[in-house]
Design a protein around this nucleic acid. Sequence first.
DNA 1: GTCTACACGTGACAC
DNA 2: TGTGTCACGTGTAGA
Lengths: 222, 222
Amino acid sequence: MSCGVPEQWLMGDDTLDDDSKSLIHDAAGWAAANAERAVKRRGRKPGPRSDGPTISHVEAERQRREKLNRRFCDLRAAVPTVSRMDKASLLADAAAYIAELRGRVEQLEAEAKQAAAARKAGHQGGGGGCPAMGMEAEKLEVRVVGREQAAVRLTTTASRHAPARLMGALRALDLPVQHACVSRVGGDAIVQDAVVDVPAALQDDGCLRAALLHVLQQDESG
Amino acid sequence: MSCGVPEQWLMGDDTLDDDSKSLIHDAAGWAAANAERAVKRRGRKPGPRSDGPTISHVEAERQRREKLNRRFCDLRAAVPTVSRMDKASLLADAAAYIAELRGRVEQLEAEAKQAAAARKAGHQGGGGGCPAMGMEAEKLEVRVVGREQAAVRLTTTASRHAPARLMGALRALDLPVQHACVSRVGGDAIVQDAVVDVPAALQDDGCLRAALLHVLQQDESG
DNA sequence: GTCTACACGTGACAC
DNA sequence: TGTGTCACGTGTAGA
């Protein structure tokens, strides 16, 4: 098996099939197993015994010890941080590792929850279906310039993803962006300047601005 | 202490201060402790012994057993899923619990890495998912700069509304835009430069680029 | 030599 | 009833 123990644990029962079901209850079988166990035998000697009903008890206890040691081996394989090859230290390390893992799970789950909450926020307008919420801090300026182009400036203070909103609105109106510049000032204020192509039907400041505002109000998410 | 064991574990050493440092090496102290230990004494009888140098060995072994049982108690407290009050079962449950925790940590970390890329469009198309159409004329460069920011450059030639796509992708990944600049050159080629905030989980060039590409591929419309 | 850790056989419970 | 688990004292091996 060789689970990494120094040279002990899982005593010399190498020839005994470790099926954990091979119960040897007759004296002959136990004697054979005991003879093969002679190598690297630690504990007390068998001593003078009168073979009675206790011999099955001895074997049962032996198998119990084997099972326990096997479990120790498994646990040792499951714990990556093993300070010493000691049984007691292994138990302590296992408990510490479990605590560490649980802490990491807790932190990761909290992060996931927070991220999900932050992402879901805004999509569900908190105070009723008024789509104009948050527009108080927005200002949209539009000026048609030249023959088929317009300059657009959107200033926001409470829109985490205002760039996506403006670009999405321009796409919704099919206004190709010729140039754009986004700057965040002071953490939450965002100034966006853009130059877009404008079809003939929208070459009016008020008309274009109304169309853009209408589309912007459809997308209040962040 | 009462860590939840049935009525055993932490044998009748109730009067012995469990400081794990009270070494009783003199015969009188051991005799007193042994007398108080008389209640609920399991194991073998003392038998006819000639009080010699073994008495300290007995006490040392006793303290080792106590320490081991204490560790068992601690481990039991750390494992929430205890099937049986058995020592071997506790070891197996601890190993299983560690495996479960590790699996959860792995999954959560993977989820955190992927951020909310899967939130935009819920599982579209079961066929492997190679929507590389139209991507030949696109190039995305990502470089994490500074502590929590990244520079992104998207160059496109066949995407009429590439600005909306990039900003939408940045919103989908919840990457706030600090600065951005869009320039159209020659009619259909568009160069976009942006500086975005990046959470700790995505502060890796390859990881961030993969996430952005994945989201960009969801939005091939124009 | 001491000290630490372990396996063993064994008596005693408990179900 | 036995069957399973535990604590105990002990012998032993390594540092």
